[in-house]
Amino acid sequence: MEQLNAIIKIITDNKDSNILLEISLDTDLRVDLDFDSLDLAELTVRCEHAFGVDIFDDGIVTTIKEIMEKISG
Protein backbone atom coordinates (compact mmCIF):
# COMPACT_ATOMS: atom_id res chain seq x y z
CA MET A 1 0.00 0.00 0.00
CA GLU A 2 2.84 2.35 0.89
CA GLN A 3 4.54 1.80 -2.46
CA LEU A 4 1.25 2.27 -4.31
CA ASN A 5 0.65 5.49 -2.36
CA ALA A 6 4.05 6.73 -3.46
CA ILE A 7 3.22 5.97 -7.11
CA ILE A 8 -0.10 7.79 -6.89
CA LYS A 9 1.62 10.73 -5.24
CA ILE A 10 4.09 10.97 -8.16
CA ILE A 11 1.20 11.09 -10.64
CA THR A 12 -0.87 13.64 -8.71
CA ASP A 13 2.26 15.76 -8.08
CA ASN A 14 3.12 15.79 -11.75
CA LYS A 15 -0.44 16.84 -12.58
CA ASP A 16 -0.14 19.71 -10.14
CA SER A 17 -3.39 18.35 -8.83
CA ASN A 18 -5.07 20.30 -6.06
CA ILE A 19 -6.67 17.18 -4.72
CA LEU A 20 -5.39 16.61 -1.20
CA LEU A 21 -6.75 13.28 -0.31
CA GLU A 22 -5.90 10.59 2.13
CA ILE A 23 -5.77 7.49 -0.04
CA SER A 24 -7.92 4.66 1.26
CA LEU A 25 -9.00 1.33 -0.19
CA ASP A 26 -12.24 2.91 -1.41
CA THR A 27 -10.56 5.78 -3.23
CA ASP A 28 -11.87 5.88 -6.79
CA LEU A 29 -9.17 6.68 -9.34
CA ARG A 30 -11.36 8.69 -11.68
CA VAL A 31 -13.91 10.22 -9.33
CA ASP A 32 -11.74 10.99 -6.28
CA LEU A 33 -8.34 11.45 -7.89
CA ASP A 34 -9.60 12.91 -11.17
CA PHE A 35 -7.38 10.54 -13.18
CA ASP A 36 -7.87 10.73 -16.94
CA SER A 37 -6.87 8.02 -19.41
CA LEU A 38 -3.28 9.33 -19.61
CA ASP A 39 -2.98 9.20 -15.81
CA LEU A 40 -4.41 5.66 -15.72
CA ALA A 41 -1.96 4.61 -18.42
CA GLU A 42 0.90 6.11 -16.39
CA LEU A 43 -0.35 4.27 -13.32
CA THR A 44 -0.23 0.94 -15.17
CA VAL A 45 3.35 1.54 -16.32
CA ARG A 46 4.53 2.54 -12.87
CA CYS A 47 2.74 -0.39 -11.21
CA GLU A 48 4.14 -2.81 -13.75
CA HIS A 49 7.61 -1.39 -13.12
CA ALA A 50 7.20 -1.70 -9.35
CA PHE A 51 5.16 -4.90 -8.96
CA GLY A 52 5.53 -6.70 -12.31
CA VAL A 53 1.74 -6.78 -12.78
CA ASP A 54 -0.33 -5.12 -15.52
CA ILE A 55 -3.23 -3.92 -13.37
CA PHE A 56 -5.45 -3.20 -16.39
CA ASP A 57 -4.64 -6.44 -18.16
CA ASP A 58 -8.13 -7.93 -18.10
CA GLY A 59 -10.28 -4.84 -17.82
CA ILE A 60 -10.47 -1.64 -15.95
CA VAL A 61 -9.85 -1.22 -12.24
CA THR A 62 -11.55 1.67 -10.52
CA THR A 63 -10.49 1.65 -6.87
CA ILE A 64 -7.31 1.29 -4.83
CA LYS A 65 -8.74 -1.91 -3.37
CA GLU A 66 -9.00 -3.45 -6.84
CA ILE A 67 -5.38 -2.52 -7.59
CA MET A 68 -4.26 -4.09 -4.31
CA GLU A 69 -6.10 -7.28 -5.27
CA LYS A 70 -4.36 -7.36 -8.66
CA ILE A 71 -0.96 -6.73 -7.12
CA SER A 72 -1.33 -9.38 -4.46
CA GLY A 73 -2.43 -11.71 -7.21
Binding site: D13, N14, D16, S37, L38, L40, A41, E42, T44, V45, D54, F56, D57
Partner: peptide, 27 residues
Protein backbone atom coordinates in the same frame (compact mmCIF):
# COMPACT_ATOMS: atom_id res chain seq x y z
CA UNK B 1 6.09 4.06 -27.21
CA UNK B 2 5.60 1.29 -24.68
CA UNK B 3 2.64 -1.11 -25.09
CA UNK B 4 -0.05 -0.16 -22.62
CA UNK B 5 -3.32 -1.82 -21.70
CA UNK B 6 -5.14 1.51 -21.28
CA UNK B 7 -3.97 3.60 -24.23
CA UNK B 8 -2.52 1.04 -26.62
CA UNK B 9 0.83 2.82 -26.24
CA UNK B 10 2.21 5.22 -23.70
CA UNK B 11 5.02 7.66 -24.37
CA UNK B 12 8.23 7.02 -22.46
CA UNK B 13 11.60 8.69 -22.62
CA UNK B 14 15.13 7.59 -21.89
CA UNK B 15 16.91 10.75 -20.89
CA UNK B 16 20.42 11.95 -20.02
CA UNK B 17 20.44 15.02 -17.79
CA UNK B 18 22.75 17.08 -15.63
CA UNK B 19 20.60 18.36 -12.84
CA UNK B 20 16.89 18.41 -13.45
CA UNK B 21 13.99 16.33 -12.13
CA UNK B 22 11.17 14.55 -13.95
CA UNK B 23 8.68 16.90 -12.36
CA UNK B 24 10.55 19.96 -13.63
CA UNK B 25 10.79 18.51 -17.14
CA UNK B 26 7.11 17.64 -17.22
CA UNK B 27 6.14 21.06 -15.96
Amino acid sequence: GLKNSVLGNILCADIVVNDITEKEIRK
